[in-house]
């Protein structure tokens, strides 16, 4: 029988402190339920048996921390994830963005880039890609590298094509990428206006003003305090009438800014900063 590893709340605090002191990443306000699960999963795959060993390796081996970071942050994403959201973006948001001479969009927590590519395809189809700049940021440098490559594993493309069609896409999806062996390369001209950068929502400031901020399924990993902090960051990055898009089960319920936004689409979780 496999031995069950467990980690107490106090142990986890110690581990997080080691990380903050050595590497500057602050996970103290992450949702504990999910974080504990991922740390345990990491210990299991890395064959770390005790919290002492975990702290020892984290303190002494930066490469071990890089591996740890890659494992405990959630890097699961999809092209056209939640087709209903992209449908709403097409119908309700892009026509409004078309009024701006330059369209600035921020994907905060872009993971390996699949949602950013999806946005580029939407913009291309709406004839807006030429005057759009898409800032794609993530806490994890390995994700940024991957996102920059434009490469998506081929075996997901069937699902992504279905998502695209459900989102109201009318084109032949396969014209947006080149397939080779097990991978698909998203067309370079679709990616021409993406700016990739590492950015940590916990510790870094805003860096521009955007007509649309997309931050989907990132805030669920934060506790209410940190969520509120990030909502302030987004609010200050949006002009009046600027759009904020969240994940399908995320909401403004627990932020003191909830009255500063109006709802554009309650199901797709698209909001707009009031004047």
């Amino acid at each position: 029988m496999k031995e069950k590893i467990d980690i107490s709340a106090a142990d986890l605090d110690d581990v997080l402190l080691v990380i903050r002191n050595n590497y500057g990443y602050d996970f103290s306000n992450y949702s504990r339920a999910s974080l504990i699960r991922r740390v345990l999963r990491f210990m299991d795959t890395a064959r770390i048996k005790t919290v002492y060993d975990l702290r020892f390796h984290l303190t002494n081996e930066p490469a071990f921390f890089a591996y740890f970071l890659q494992t405990i942050t959630v890097n699961v994403t999809e092209m056209f994830r939640d087709p209903a959201f992209y449908h709403s973006l097409r119908e309700k948001v892009l026509p409004k963005l078309a009024a701006y001479p330059i369209i600035k969009i921020w994907h905060a927590g872009c993971s390996s880039g699949e949602e950013v590519y999806s946005m580029c395809i939407l913009l291309e189809e709406a004839g807006l890609l030429n005057r759009a700049v898409i800032y794609a940021t993530d806490i994890n440098p390995a994700n940024i590298e991957k996102a920059r490559s434009g490469i998506v594993p081929m075996h997901y493309m069937k699902d992504y094509t279905a998502n695209y069609q459900q989102s109201g896409g009318k084109e032949d999806f396969s014209t947006y990428y080149t397939a080779r062996y097990e991978n698909a390369l998203i067309r370079k001209d679709l990616r021409r206006n993406i700016v990739f950068s590492q950015h940590n929502l916990v510790t870094d400031q805003g860096f521009n003003e955007f007509q649309l901020v997309c931050c989907r399924n990132v805030l669920i990993y934060f506790n209410k305090t940190l969520q509120n902090h990030v909502f302030h960051l987004f609010y200050n990055s949006l002009p009046p009438m600027g759009y904020l898009a969240l994940g399908m089960k995320e909401s403004l319920l627990f932020t003191d800014l909830r009255d500063k936004f109006e709802t554009v689409d309650a199901t797709a979780k698209i909001f707009k900063r009031k004047k």
């Binding site: 709340a9 949702s31 339920a33 999910s34 991922r38 959630v74 669920i220």
Partner: peptide, 11 residues
């Protein structure tokens, strides 16, 4: 969560 609230996870 420990404070008896829900958390969602997309892992």
């Amino acid at each position: 969560e420990a404070d008896k609230t829900f958390s969602l996870d997309y892992s």
